[in-house]
């Protein structure tokens, strides 16, 4: 029997994984941890299990790998799509999946890892599905006008309002008005949060950069 520990503070995601695994005859969920303390107790108590955990929930990978080794536990990390898999695989985590994983791949990963093999969800497939997976980024991208996208690109590159105004051939006040609209549409409160949001949603960053490049090219052609 393959024993599973689920460790994630997102109850809905935990329930979703549990639902997929629960119907398998040879798999049993022995613990569900929603706090770090519960996860540590489960590692100690259910030796020889496979632990599926969220990277944001247990960020100290090195310590986790050490504890897991002491208890004969194999680890499967649920990584964010912005994370680099090697970071976990080189630290000794055997399995890596993203939140976009489907049932068949999740089961494949768990079975491989329980047999001591390495399994990492294919990043290229995740990237190909980025449009479908990143609903928030895609929705924001579609709500912004080309000029707003260009301003987002310039903010992320470190331009000040005055410089953006000069590049767009307008006034600083107009740039501030645009920015206020962008903040409202995205739901952020300042330019740092805007930049972080954009970095986090690569689909938006790429659209902003592409729009900025297109506008730069067309303004270059008109001169």
């Amino acid at each position: 029997m393959l024993k599973i520990i689920l460790a994630d503070n997102q109850a809905i995601f935990r329930a979703g994984i549990a639902k997929v695994l629960a119907v398998e005859d040879d798999i049993r969920i022995v613990a569900q941890a929603q706090t770090v303390e519960q996860a540590m107790i489960a590692i100690e108590k259910f030796r020889g299990s496979v632990m599926i955990y969220a990277s944001s929930f247990l960020p100290d990978t090195a310590r986790l790998v050490q504890l897991a080794r002491q208890s004969g536990i194999q680890l499967v990390v649920i990584a964010e799509s912005t994370e680099v898999p090697e970071r976990y695989l080189s630290a000794g985590v055997l399995g890596l999946i993203f939140r976009s994983v489907d049932s068949a791949e999740l089961l494949r990963c768990v079975r491989k890892v329980s047999a001591g093999e390495v399994y990492a969800q294919d990043l290229r497939k995740v990237a190909n599905n980025a449009d479908c997976d990143d609903f928030v980024g895609a929705r924001v991208r579609d709500r912004l006008t080309p000029k707003e996208l260009k301003i987002v690109a310039l903010i992320v590159q470190g331009y000040k309002n005055k410089e953006i105004a000069s590049l767009l051939g307008t006034t600083e006040q107009v740039v501030k008005n645009y920015l206020r609209n962008v903040y409202d549409k995205i739901g952020v409160s300042d330019r740092l949060e805007l930049a972080l949001f954009t970095i986090h949603h690569r689909i938006l960053a790429e659209a902003a950069a592409a729009t900025a490049a297109t506008m730069r090219a067309s303004s270059g052609n008109s001169h």
């Binding site: 990277s55 944001s56 964010e80 912005t82 994370e83 409160s189 949060e193 972080l196 949001f197 970095i199």
Partner: peptide, 8 residues
């Protein structure tokens, strides 16, 4: 404020 998992 919103927290972003960003590894930089």
């Amino acid at each position: 404020s919103r927290r972003f998992q960003v590894h930089l």
